[in-house]
């Protein structure tokens, strides 16, 4: 007897093969996902004197790891500046996005609102009709946002898709909760801030994560709108480092130490990924619930 989803099940030989194959498939998938990540991590810690191929390098044990590449990166002013630009974009971006998306999604979820239908259409037209890159580029440059970090997060501050997921969540909150507060004379703003928001932690974390990932990972808008070195975020620097074929201006030779350029490249990949990797296990428990609620029903 074996327990499957809490049920005691008697397995015949064919079933045993089936469950064996299921786990084998999952193991293969796990290896396929993990090996590229693992090989990048080990490469970033590989000492310069290591002789051998990347394949052999994957089996380098943690006690042989060298942190020279990370020391070189953290001692590099260009890297520190790019990292702090990325953090600024992340923080201001998520804050302004939530500040704009939450009220819109909340009002869209009010079923008694006069004109709600027109508001929906107003939101959906640009969502369905994607006009493309150039017309938006003209607006952003005309507003004088070139070479300011706001150019990265302001044009994409409201994602209609995220807003619709959030609306779906708000619609699921029972009206009685709001009504009882209103009867007690609470204002609408009070209802939103004190009743709705505390109940909406899962969706706010989820949508906040979605926005955060978009802003942290943005390469393209930074390339379009930021032309000065001191404003460049991490993805731009990372691409420059990856494109470099040898020692170059991105890594000062004095700080270069005993790290190879390969290790520096791998370390900068890992450093760019760290905030996402670190944040997401904590938020994961929210987003499985949050996404499911919104995405299926919309």
């Amino acid at each position: 007897m074996k327990r499957i989803r809490g049920m005691a099940v008697r397995l015949n030989p064919a079933d045993r093969v089936f469950y064996g194959l299921v786990d084998f498939f999952l193991a293969v998938i796990l290896v396929i996902v993990a090996v590229p990540l693992w090989s990048t991590i080990t490469l970033s810690f590989r000492p310069n004197h290591f002789i051998g191929s990347n394949l052999e390098g994957m089996f380098l044990m943690p006690w042989q790891w060298s942190t020279a590449a990370y020391k070189a990166l953290l001692g590099n002013t260009g890297f520190i500046s790019a990292f702090s630009n990325s953090v600024k974009i992340l923080v201001f971006g998520v804050a302004s996005s939530l500040f704009l998306t939450i009220p819109l999604a909340y009002v869209l979820s009010i079923k008694t609102l006069p004109g709600r239908k027109y508001l929906n259409v107003f939101i959906l037209i640009p969502y369905l009709f994607n006009i493309g890159l150039i017309p938006t580029y003209l607006v952003v440059t005309k507003l004088g946002l070139t070479n300011s970090l706001a150019a990265i997060f302001l044009p994409g501050a409201i994602s209609t898709y995220n807003c619709l997921i959030m609306r779906g969540f708000f619609e699921g909150i029972p009206d009685e909760l709001k009504e009882s507060a209103r009867i007690d004379g609470a204002s609408e703003l009070y209802v939103l801030l004190r009743i709705i928001l505390p109940l909406s932690k899962p969706i706010i974390m989820t949508i906040g994560l979605y926005y955060g990932v978009t802003f942290w990972n943005d390469f393209f808008h930074a390339m379009l709108y930021l032309n000065v070195n001191h404003l460049q975020p991490l993805p731009i620097l990372l691409r420059n480092i990856l494109m470099a074929s040898g020692m170059n201006e991105y890594v000062e030779s004095s700080a270069f130490g005993e790290a190879s350029i390969q290790a520096i490249k791998a370390a900068s990949i890992f450093m760019s990924a760290i905030p996402m990797i670190a944040a997401y296990p904590f938020i994961q428990k929210y987003f499985t619930r949050g996404t499911l609620l919104g995405s299926v029903k919309g």
Partner: peptide, 9 residues
């Protein structure tokens, strides 16, 4: 959650 720059790397 990784960007295409990272995946490219």
């Amino acid at each position: 959650f990784l960007s295409w720059v990272i995946v490219y790397g």
